[in-house]
Amino acid sequence: MTAVLEARGLKKSFGRNEALRGIDVSIRRGEIVAIMGPSGSGKSTLLHCLAGVTVPDAGIVRFNGTAISTLDETARGRLRLGDFGFVFQFGQLLPELTAIDNVAVPLLLAGERRAAASARAAEWLVRLGLDGKAQRRPQELSGGEAQRVAIARALVTKPAVLFADEPTGSLDSLAAEGVMKLMIELVRESGTTVVVVTHDSRTAAYADRDIIVRDGRVSVALGEAA
């Protein structure tokens, strides 16, 4: 199987602080990978590098064989819009928009017409069990509901890769389970690759395998072999 995402020798420092000290990862198409490790080990930084949010100081990131770490911001923006989806711990919904509009935004950004975008957004809200909540604003949703809206928004453009950083970090076990279960069902259905950063082993257990990051390196005991 081909690697959809591949990173070689990633390094990234913030001032004196070396967040990544040479990371190699390879993620196959359709694979669900959990990135785990202690706090401050560089998980989020790795995710941002893989997703073309942050440019690494050294090393290369390839998406479908194209080096994305050398693209300019505009091109990476286009890539993020078209091929990647994002889910974070919280606060990622636009507070001024209703749930349905939040989901429709990426479609509109991609140039879809309003009516079509709204229809598809509504469809996704139903799939995530949010029918009846379409007109709510983020402040009027529970944490779990907001995360499900975020997942709908991340998946509505049918991205090749879904990046999630602590998607269940602010939820209780039951809500976390609901969110993960839905997310996994949906990505399995569409064959989306998922990279999920988490420190919660039950969330990580939904993945096909896990990558342990420790002190800016992939833990060697298992590493990529697993």
């Binding site: 949010v53 505009t74 923006g77 286009r78 890539l79 993020r80 819009l81 078209g82 990647f84 994002f86 606060g91 990622q92 636009l94 507070p95 001024e96 935004v105 990426p106 950004l109």
Partner: peptide, 16 residues
């Protein structure tokens, strides 16, 4: 800036 940064992250071009 958080919201605007988020939009950039989602791939919204600066011109938009």
């Amino acid at each position: 800036r958080r919201v605007l940064g988020l939009l950039r992250l989602m791939g919204m071009p600066a011109s938009q």
